[in-house]
Simulated assay, not measured.
Amino acid sequence: MGRQDAPVKVMFLEITLKVGGAERLLANLLESFDPQRVQPVVAFLRDPGPVAESINLSGIKVYSNLAAGRSDPRLVPALINVMRKERPDIVYMCNYPLLMFTGRLAGLITGANTQVVALHSIGYQSRARWRTLSLKLMKRFISTFVAVSQGQKDYYVKTHGLDPKRIEVIYVGIDTERFSPTKYESARPEFNIPEEAPVAGIVAMLRPEKNHELLLRAARIIRDGGLDAYFLIVGDGPERKRLENCAQNLGIADYVRFAGSRPDVPRMLRSIDVSVLCSSNVVETFPQSLVESMAMELPVVSTNVGSVNEVIVEGETGYLVPEGDAQALAEKIAYLLQNPDLRRKMGVAGRRRVEEQFSRDIMTRHFEDMFERLARRTETRETIGR
């Protein structure tokens, strides 16, 4: 659409912004674009949730409730109307089948043919087969794919046959001002955790693939070893009741606190000494909670799954342990809980790593560079075609 002196207009096509790492990534991006480089427009298929209010307040145009459901026949006409009105240079969407099919069809009709698909899920999802099929059918029509880690890019090249030259790796970045250890007081009194007690914690939705039971088993081992430690579990989900029962059965319920879903994640992290992730294999494309923990100057201990090894520098910012190994997890957590000097050293190294590689500003600049490059490529093709 060729507007050399204007910012690149990018339409972000999403289902909702209510939950999930991909949705948090988009919310972060929308807040930090340079308006001289990127002009975002957002189209939600459903109710975007409370985040839409803050997006509107920032001056970004938002379209919402374009469809009543997946099979709503009004969806494609609604997208066509929005694209004709906004005339985006680029359409950006996640790798959900509904978004890829409807977004591509509407783009084909309106001429919005530069389309970028963000790859965020590689684990066993409820609709994994549909995602695999949609990628197989649509990959030739997508201009560029965005992976959030090198490991994720390698997975999609090997498993889905995507062209590595058409996959950009852009690490997820976080707001290092919000996640700053000097800005928050501990929430330990709220959970009746002694201020002097060693505390390990996890921030993750209570879903099977996050494998919180592994942490509870490690907690039992730590307590049996004589360390008077507590464990803070932040997040909610379908596994909560089972995990509460598990803590009871292990005899550690008095030392485990289930905080539920919390908007004050930095304050929760300020309340712990060691941050833990114990997910099963493959599902962690890029563990944002570990990056947030490192920004809060916390050492991290995680199962070595997915792309976790691209975040943690072994022995410098934390430790990696084999998947499913409660003994190894317990040993590393206990070692850090008993060594405050090492915790501080690792915490400082982790914060520095986030500032150098995983900040929101760095992520945003990479996206802006990519969008401008794609827009220039489109302008060149249009000029040659005249």
Rank of each mutant, 00 (worst) to 15 (best):
P7C: 08
I15L: 14
I15F: 00
V19L: 11
G20K: 04
G21D: 11
A27W: 01
E31S: 15
F33H: 08
D34L: 02
P35S: 06
Q36E: 15
Q36M: 13
G49F: 01
G59A: 12
R70G: 14
T110S: 01
H120G: 13
I122A: 15
Q125M: 07
R129I: 15
L135R: 02
F141W: 11
V146I: 15
K158N: 15
I170W: 07
Y184S: 04
Y184W: 05
N192T: 13
P198I: 01
V199K: 06
A204P: 09
M205K: 05
H212S: 15
L214E: 14
L214S: 15
A218C: 14
G225S: 12
L227S: 14
D228W: 02
Y230I: 08
I233P: 06
E244R: 02
G251S: 03
R257T: 09
S261Y: 02
M268G: 12
I272A: 13
I272Y: 01
I272Q: 03
D273F: 11
V276G: 05
E297D: 00
V305Y: 00
N309T: 10
V313T: 14
T317N: 02
V321Q: 03
P322D: 08
A328F: 00
E331I: 03
K345Q: 13
R351D: 04
F358V: 03
D361G: 09
F367D: 07
M370K: 00
F371Y: 11
